[in-house]
């Protein structure tokens, strides 16, 4: 199944229509989620009033922070075992975009935290800490790839690091949870609340799916750019050899 996608040419054909579809559907879903989230749904007094409307941006970003890292690690694994070039191109494309959404998750969480907790940064919050370390994993991955002098080396080193990071994520998560559960401040309002009202659920799901589709579309476009770049480099190399 992986091999079918492994052909760059097939990927270019597939993504030429799939990426625009992702953009269109993603834009629609995000727009609907925003409209519902900002205009329609009532504010939740239990969650601190209108500030919970940040949820429709923050939660999709948090979901993508986790999902994109896992996606990158999976692509790295596939590349490492089967050496499918497209998988490496995917991992490389996911990194900067995943880092962007992870940073967005941190920033919106921080903005949400200020009126709710009275502080921009809460060391006691396990989710903030985990996402921060996720962000560092992305940064390390990108820096490592950028430091390698050949494409092949960048792919191999990146894949090793992404896999090491991925198997460490549960341990990091566990340690951070333990750390924060002992420091928990009773006055902290839990952002998830006891249960989420159904009015918020649909806009939230729409936003989450919309962001995921937009993300997938961007990854595909970035992958296309990388494939074109590699082709151009190949042709240049052949021209040089021919001279």
């Amino acid at each position: 199944m992986f091999s079918w996608f492994a052909n760059p040419h097939r990927f270019l054909t597939l993504s030429s229509w799939l990426a625009p579809v992702c953009y269109a559907l993603g834009a629609l879903l995000i727009a609907w989620g925003l409209w519902q989230g900002l205009w329609i749904v009532p504010k939740d007094e239990y969650q601190g009033g209108d500030i919970m409307r940040v949820m429709f941006l923050h939660v999709p970003a948090a979901w993508l922070a986790m999902a994109s890292y896992m996606g990158m690690a999976m692509m790295s694994f596939i590349w490492f075992i089967w050496r499918h070039e497209v998988a490496d191109i995917a991992a490389k494309a996911i990194a900067p975009l995943g880092a962007t959404w992870t940073a967005l998750c941190l920033a919106t969480g921080s903005i949400w935290g200020k009126p709710t907790w009275g502080t921009w940064w809460q060391w006691d919050d396990a989710r903030m800490m985990s996402v921060l370390f996720m962000f560092f994993l992305f940064l390390g991955y990108m820096a490592l790839r950028a430091a390698m002098d050949t494409r092949q080396k960048a792919a191999r080193a990146g894949a090793i690091l992404a896999m090491v990071g991925a198997i460490n994520v549960p341990l990091i998560k566990f340690s951070v949870d333990l750390f924060t559960s002992l420091h928990q401040d009773a006055s902290v309002i839990t952002v998830d609340g006891p249960k989420m009202a159904a009015v918020y659920l649909w806009p939230l799901l729409a936003s989450g799916l919309g962001h995921s589709l937009l993300f997938a579309g961007l990854v595909m476009t970035l992958m296309r750019a990388e494939i074109w770049q590699r082709r151009a480099a190949q042709i240049r190399a052949r021209l040089m050899a021919g001279d």
Partner: peptide
């Protein structure tokens, strides 16, 4: 050096916390 620090930092977290 900087690269090593960036790579190692998240991996050091559990040990530092425990």
């Amino acid at each position: 050096g900087l690269l090593i620090s960036l790579i190692a930092l998240p991996l050091y977290v559990p040990t530092a916390i425990f």
